[in-house]
């Protein structure tokens, strides 16, 4: 019985990850894409970790998956915040966000 529940959870979380990557290609704004990465992907990983714990039922698997879950909860908003802040800073100072483009334009000016 537990195998059927685990298999359906696996397929549901795979569909959630597929929805998240469709959202990555469809959304226009950078901040909207960051919403997708921080929320939908961690929801899919949460479902996968629940399925793994239901299947194995060992204590060290529980401990390791709790560590992974807490990393996802507390560090992915921080990394999203850092990326968003740098993007905001680049927009405010009106700098091009691609260093290669700026370097090539500088070379063109020098020539």
């Amino acid at each position: 019985m537990i195998e059927y529940i685990t298999g359906s959870l696996l397929v549901i979380s795979a569909l959630v990850v597929l929805i998240a990557s469709v959202g990555i290609i469809r959304f226009k704004d950078l901040y909207a894409r960051m919403h997708v990465v921080t929320k939908v992907s961690s929801f899919g990983l949460l479902l996968l970790l629940i399925a793994l714990n239901l299947l194995t039922l060992k204590w060290w698997v529980l401990v390791e998956s709790l560590i992974i879950f807490h990393i996802l909860i507390f560090l992915s908003p921080i990394s999203a915040h850092v990326t968003a802040k740098v993007n905001l800073w680049l927009d405010k100072n009106d700098l091009p966000a691609d260093p290669e483009a700026e370097e090539s334009s500088a070379e063109n000016k020098a020539e």
């Binding site: 950078l30 966000a97 691609d98």
Partner: peptide
């Protein structure tokens, strides 16, 4: 079969971020 199907679905979903990686206009994208 469920695990194999999930692996195939995730492999297909790897295509869209790769497209965004090649197409993305700026470095934060």
């Amino acid at each position: 079969y469920a695990a194999l199907g999930a692996i195939w679905i995730m492999t297909v979903s790897l295509v869209f971020p790769l497209l965004r990686l090649f197409k993305g206009p700026s470095l934060p994208d």
